[in-house]
Design a protein around this nucleic acid. Structure first.
Length: 473
DNA sequence: CCTGGAGTTGTCCTA
DNA sequence: TTAGGACAACTCCAG
């Protein structure tokens, strides 16, 4: 039997700074590169629609980079490896670690199974700057507050791993009896929507590299403040690439370190690093408190009197709440598979604190529609917005969608782009069109209840209701 | 065990 | 028009 090594690609779809692949490239055996669509092993949260679209294009690209020798399969990983063991003498199987609770469990039992079969199993850290089990307080319990987690925990720990280069030479095993092609995974179930949301993205390693270059050459120097303004395009936009590993956070981290040597203590650069720190924090929470993806972190929220009005959920999803900044955000999500961070907070606050809908409904919708849908970030983010999370926003912090619009979308560029129907409205009324005199609305061809909805709730009333409900906990 | 300071992202009212 | 304080109290964390 042919001796081989297997590199199992998961959420590390890149050749550079890939510890697992790098390791195998130094061994004498030809490498079978494999990707397994294993979402059916995660009953609770199978991949969302947008994630599948991103994955599809990513796999096309990765396969190309690997000379068309990527083996793409779908199903239960254990059975798949069992089959491969019948055909090959597998010396080593190696992968980069994932941190979702279901994967940790699955990988553990898989490791045992493979070791019994005399396969050497290796796993590496390819996606976190610090391993969650290494960042603990002095009493060796995990952190629950971001600032000490990052400042004391991360920054005082061993510095992150330095990035690796792509292996110079890869001895790729030519897998002749490919059974499943990418198309059989049916990742593009709705081609029309898939096409629409992919339009603004180059979903490939080259696309990732471009976006990264663009960010580091210029945008990062306005990051700290610019990131608050959705029309400024000052955010990195790297999250989907980070999610699937086309970009390595270690590379980002050390690129920041490099920049910092020429721009010491530049607050824009350190701010971006601290955003990477938030990702670490989310993973830290998910690792130490795996229930956060389904349960309120603060138990008292289990008694919260949510009003799970289905009609409101629908309107929120479609961007028909009557609050332009909220609706624009929800349209951005459906149109591009992405939403600006500032707007994520606004639509999140609105769903939870004005519509009184459980954060899980929001989490589900984001999971299905975001290219960067990531279990750790998504649950931690929503619990933060909802007030039920670790170190969450205090309950009285309720965003006002009118004020937020006026403050962060000053000239309405963002809102008008996603809601062209409002483009002729004077900025004074852009975020509260129902308060505009009827003549002004008519002149701008805005007909409330016809081509743009009336607000579905009153923010003042609903704010008071939310405050009361939170107090009752 | 005790103590004190601090805690991503806001809003509203009042003077 | 603008700046400052109230909003509530609790838990986390380090010394």
């Amino acid at each position: 039997m042919q001796k081989v090594a297997i590199n199992w690609f998961r959420k590390d779809l890149r050749l550079h700074d890939n510890p697992s692949l790098y390791y195998l490239s130094k061994l004498p055996w030809p490498i079978i590169n494999i990707f397994i669509l294993d979402e059916q092993e995660n009953y609770e949260k199978p991949l969302g629609g947008a994630s599948k679209v991103w994955l599809h294009h990513s796999l096309v690209d990765l396969n190309k980079q690997l000379d068309n020798k990527l083996l793409i399969l779908s199903g239960n990983a254990k059975y798949i490896f069992e089959e491969l063991l019948k055909k090959y003498q597998i010396k080593t199987i190696s992968w980069n670690r994932c941190y979702e609770p279901w994967r940790i469990k699955r990988d553990e039992s898989l490791k045992q199974f493979l070791e019994i079969k005399n396969v050497a199993v290796k796993s590496f850290n390819g996606s976190l700057l610090w391993e969650p089990w290494n960042i603990l307080k002095k009493d060796s319990t995990p952190y629950k507050v971001y600032s000490p987690f990052f400042k004391r925990g991360c920054l005082c720990a061993q510095p992150p791993r330095k990035p690796l280069l792509a292996p110079e030479k890869l001895n790729l095993f030519d897998f002749k009896d490919k059974k499943s092609a990418l198309d059989e995974l049916k990742l593009l179930s709705s081609r029309k929507w898939a096409k629409k949301i992919s339009k603004n993205w180059k979903i490939s390693m080259a696309g990732a590299e471009n976006k990264k270059k663009l960010f580091f050459s210029d945008k990062i120097f306005k990051y700290k403040n610019g990131r608050n303004f959705p029309s400024m395009n000052s955010v990195s936009g790297l999250s989907p690439y980070i999610n699937w590993g086309q970009i390595s956070v270690n590379e980002l981290w050390y690129q920041c370190q490099d920049l910092l040597t020429h721009n010491p203590e530049n607050p824009n650069i350190t701010h971006f690093q601290s955003e990477l720190g938030w990702r670490e924090f989310s993973y830290n929470l998910l690792f130490h408190f795996p229930e956060i993806s389904t349960n309120n972190f603060q138990k008292k929220f289990d008694n919260f009197p949510w009003i799970n009005n289905k009609n409101f959920i629908k309107k929120w999803q479609k961007g028909e709440t009557g609050y332009p900044i909220v609706d624009a955000g929800m349209k951005e999500l459906r149109m591009t598979g992405y939403m600006h961070n500032r707007v994520r907070m606004i639509v999140g606050s609105f769903l939870v604190k004005n519509l009184l809908i459980d954060w899980k409904s929001g989490e589900d919708w984001f999971w299905d529609n975001l290219f960067d849908a990531d279990m750790a970030n998504n649950s931690a983010g929503w619990q933060w917005v909802g007030g039920s999370g670790a170190d969450a926003a205090p309950y009285f912090r309720i965003f006002n969608p009118i004020t937020q619009g006026q403050k962060f979308d000053l000239n309405g560029e963002y809102t008008k782009f996603y809601l062209p129907i409002l483009s002729k409205l004077p900025s004074k009324f852009l975020f509260n069109p129902w308060e505009a005199p009827i003549e002004i609305r008519e002149k701008a061809s805005v007909f409330l209840g016809k081509n743009y909805p009336f607000p579905i709730v009153d923010v003042k009333d609903s704010r008071q209701k939310a405050l009361k409900a939170f107090k009752s906990l």
